[in-house]
């Protein structure tokens, strides 16, 4: 049913990641991605128990270092860490030393001095996780860096697609929205193309990064063409600032030209699923009827986020205590 079995490589399956950090999907092989997804299935089972806790990361300290506001991702990581019995703490920008003028490097070195096992970093600057990974002994988990990557989002998206469709290979996935500024887009394109999906991306021409064509995707400004026959429709959040930045004239025009309406969804396969990394803007990139409709898996994505993040943390910690999960 799943990718590992369908597209199994000849070599024996991986049992651990080859990387100390999760900086981006760019560093992962297809086999490593499949390993994370397979591990997440076991983690999802933990979430179905009455006592949703395993001792896997007992005695390990995980710091959630968030320089940008986040509800969904930070909560999801924190739940994942607690279910793995890690000692976790949250450092948010408002309470951090950054307001006193401390640099990211100094903040990281100070946290590092307290010997955490992992640092989960969310930061507005692309490459912030790479910078930390050169300073810290702790494993760095990218929870979103600037416009670069958001690897756990792409992993939970892939997990959700695989759960619904049984595979990723050969599926037509249409990603519609602000491609230029989206880290979710970049991680998803990398992941989906590595696992053999046919990826279409669609946005107003002003929001398509120069060089997008070279990422192994089909690029279009025609949303109907993007959605036509799609197995998966993935919407990206459109931020109001983009309109103010002159990328498009009005939210109304954006919705009429690119918004995902029921009529547009009809062009996709009958069993197509609708995804969105959240938070959604109802009536901007997606009609409420679509977001709340039966094809929507938006809340499944959120639920799966916990399992996928548990898998990532577990594998980065070395994955040595597998028996405690099974």
């Amino acid at each position: 049913m799943d990718v590992a079995r369908n597209d199994a490589p000849a070599a024996p399956p991986l049992t651990e990641l080859k990387h100390k950090h999760l900086l981006g999907i760019a560093d992962l092989s297809a086999e490593e991605i499949v390993l994370i997804l397979d591990t997440a299935e076991a983690m999802k089972e933990v979430g179905r128990r009455t006592i949703k806790k395993v001792p896997t990361l007992r005695g390990r300290t995980v710091i959630n270092l968030f320089f940008e506001p986040s509800t969904r991702t930070r909560t999801s990581f924190e739940i994942a860490e607690k279910r793995l019995s890690a000692d976790t703490l949250n450092v948010a920008i408002a309470s951090s030393s950054v307001v006193k003028g401390e640099t990211l490097v100094d903040t990281a070195m100070n946290l590092e001095a307290m010997s955490p096992s992992m640092i989960v970093l969310r930061h507005a600057s692309s490459g912030a996780c790479h910078l930390l990974s050169r300073i810290c002994k702790a494993a760095i988990v990218n929870a979103g860096d600037g416009m670069h990557e958001h690897p756990t989002q792409a992993l939970l998206d892939a997990f959700t697609i695989r759960e619904r469709k049984g595979k990723l290979k050969g599926l037509k996935v249409a990603i519609v929205g602000d491609l230029l500024h989206s880290r979710v887009l970049r991680s998803n394109v990398l992941l989906l193309t590595k696992l053999g999906a046919e990826v279409w991306v669609c946005a107003p021409a002003t929001l398509i990064p120069v060089g997008m064509q070279q990422m192994g995707v089909r690029v279009t400004t025609n949303v109907d063409e993007a959605v036509e026959g799609a197995d998966v429709i993935m919407m990206l959040r459109m931020q109001l600032e983009r309109m103010q930045g002159g990328y498009f004239p009005s939210l109304r025009e954006y919705f009429t030209t690119f918004g995902m309406t029921e009529a547009r969804v009809k062009r996709a396969k009958p069993d197509a699923i609708i995804m969105h990394p959240g938070p959604i803007n109802r009536g901007v990139e997606i009609a409420s009827e679509v977001a709340d409709g039966s094809a929507s898996v938006i809340l499944d994505q959120v639920a799966n986020g916990v399992a996928v993040r548990m898998a990532v943390l577990y594998l980065l910690a070395g994955g040595t205590e597998h028996e405690t999960v099974a």
Binding site: G127, H148, V210, G211, Q214, M215
Partner: peptide, 15 residues
Amino acid sequence: HEGPIAASLGLRGIP
């Protein structure tokens, strides 16, 4: 520089 590498690194481009 605005191009494929800046696009993949998520860096804002200067054409």
